[in-house]
Design a protein around this nucleic acid. Structure first.
Lengths: 351, 351
DNA sequence: GTGAAAGCGCTAACAA
DNA sequence: TTGTTAGCGCTTTCAC
């Protein structure tokens, strides 16, 4: 493998002209060869590749983008990178993107609309080919900037009436129903829900799906047993403490995400409550850590890989079948319960 | 705020020429204005900004890069994104970079040299202005590719004799000495070390620093009490199980990173050992999660913010003081013990 | 099949 | 101070 790029007399790195001159062809032929055009004869193609190797030539993507208009960069905007769900999602997305010859540009907004606008702007300046907006709510301000410039976007859980926008629908109810069913079978009747912030569409959907699941399981839900938290560890701990101060306490708590659930685990530990003996806890997301909490967390899995794949496919469909009127614009990602050790029968197995 | 970019008759997005024509100046003046050149009169500058706003014009960074040779993109290569340490590091790095007008390109190698080479190649193609190589070992293959092309790089814990390369030295021994001192004061004599993979420079350094700290504390170290793990949760759990099978078992275990320590917590729990009553555990890194393990983890903090700042400063020094012969090429990041609840006196407080 | 030439949108050197 | 102009390195017609 050649390492040191040959520089010419003036110390310049090799460009397409240098390759052409070494291979004794025109720069057009070099370009065609690199881009896999079928028009190039095998004889010349071989000479070109050899010259590329010899010079250790690397094409300049900026020049390429400038003339072709396509950057092969995909943007991904997430809400909050300190929730491990998002790094995991980004990693999945990157893996798929790189496999398909795309680079990714990452931004996290921390739910700040100004930051979101800046992200969108930077992505636009870099001429991203498409953007996955994985903020689960609050995305309005960014949409116009992107779609007005005809950049394909894909939103999680948010439908937009724009030909360039696709949507990923999240089916939480399957997993949440399984969770309630699981708890109900164990004998739980008093089940609380620690919700996410109501500024997030997904948090509201999750809460609604929880209520629906309780109802369809024939379980009573006390008003005080639904508490709005903020999807963080601290918020989960605080939410559970609030729950503990109640006169009638639930025997199980379902959380809007794993971070909340881990916060509950922590708060319960501080109160010397044993999980699952004294309290059952269920999370949502199934982040990698969920398997390693104490005890290992029973949770509703929302696969990052599935979500990333759906996002990438949505974008790719927009890019590659731009004209197609029967373009798939909606994608579905489902959830499923993963039973580990944080759930068991309630202390006294009577309702 | 204008949203919809005005397109011209042919539907094209506004370019620098469109701005110039609206502002009734030359494109050079537009360029100068955007780049904050002091040469532009206030009168024209005002007209230009107004035109930019009116058209909702966004400069094309690729064109900019092509002609200027500077992309304002910084690369960061990490080892393994599934260790939360790295996402946290990346976030810090990005924050600093964005603040200074840089974009970042992220790659993780999973310790695979082929992946590393591909990362370097992609970064080179994107004409990154500099690269932070945060792989903590195994970085050799990438160095030549980058430095041969005169791209400034900064390595963690790895010195290279190249004018474009800077190094961040990690001072583990301060934190590790504090840890040993802390355990020793609590009464521990039998202290084990779960090391990282020996393919990593940092893992070897940490282990050596541990040995030195033990010696300087006058503590005996049994051969079997140092086990090579792999810096993962599973590896930590497995390492501790191996330790448990020993005839003479340690009362405390120091881990090469937090993931390992959390694995130990899990394995101890499975064996019904209570931490810290039956066993003291210390991690290294202080990832965000460390505060939320059960019990909260005593650990040696290696600040991601400090490391990211050092990496950014090293790169910026290379970029902005290219000619300076007295350029700072070495940076130091230190460590410090954070005491939480995973350490206490050993079961029977006698050596 | 292959090559010549015209830009992509911008910056920077040079003129005025 | 401002404008004119020559490319940056590449893709893509359009001839041949």
């Amino acid at each position: 493998m050649p390492r040191k790029p040959n520089r010419n007399a003036t110390g310049k790195l090799p460009d397409i002209r240098a390759v052409a001159s070494v291979a004794k062809v025109s720069i057009a032929t070099v370009s065609r060869t690199m881009n896999g055009s079928p028009l190039v004869s095998e004889r010349l193609s071989k000479r070109v590749w050899q010259a590329i190797k010899q010079l250790n030539y690397l094409p300049n993507t900026h020049a390429r983008t400038l003339v072709s208009g396509r950057s092969r960069i995909l943007g991904i905007i997430v809400e909050n990178i300190s929730n491990p769900f998002f790094p995991e999602l980004i990693q999945s997305f990157e893996e798929i993107a790189v496999t398909h010859g795309y680079e990714i540009l990452v931004s996290s907004t921390n739910s700040d609309p100004a930051v979101l606008a800046a992200c969108a702007r930077r992505m636009l300046e870099r001429k991203v080919d498409g953007v996955a907006v994985m903020t689960f709510g609050e995305e309005e301000p960014v949409l116009d900037q992107l779609t007005y410039r005809d950049v394909p976007i894909v939103l999680a859980e948010f439908k937009v009436d724009d030909p360039k926008a696709s949507t990923i629908l999240l089916d939480y109810s399957t997993g949440i129903n399984q969770a309630i069913h699981h708890l109900s079978e164990l004998g739980h009747r008093a089940i609380a829900f620690l919700a996410g912030p109501h500024s997030l569409h997904s948090a509201i959907t999750r809460e609604n799906d929880f209520r629906a699941a309780m109802e369809s399981a024939g379980l009573q839900l006390q008003k005080r047993w639904v508490i709005e938290c903020d999807h963080t560890l601290k918020g989960g701990a605080a939410g559970f403490e609030q729950l503990s101060r109640l006169a009638s306490r639930p025997t199980a708590v379902v959380c809007s995400n794993d971070m909340t659930a881990i916060g509950v685990l922590r708060a319960a530990y501080m109160q010397s409550l044993r999980v699952p003996h004294d309290l059952s806890v269920i999370g949502l997301d199934d982040i990698d850590f969920a398997e390693f909490t104490l005890p290992p967390l029973t949770t509703i899995r929302l696969s990052r890989a599935d979500l990333a794949r759906a996002a990438f496919n949505a974008l790719r469909a927009q890019l590659e079948e731009a004209g197609n009127p029967r373009l798939q614009r909606e994608f579905l990602v489902s959830t499923t319960l993963v039973v580990r050790d944080s759930t068991a029968a309630p202390p006294s197995s009577a309702a």
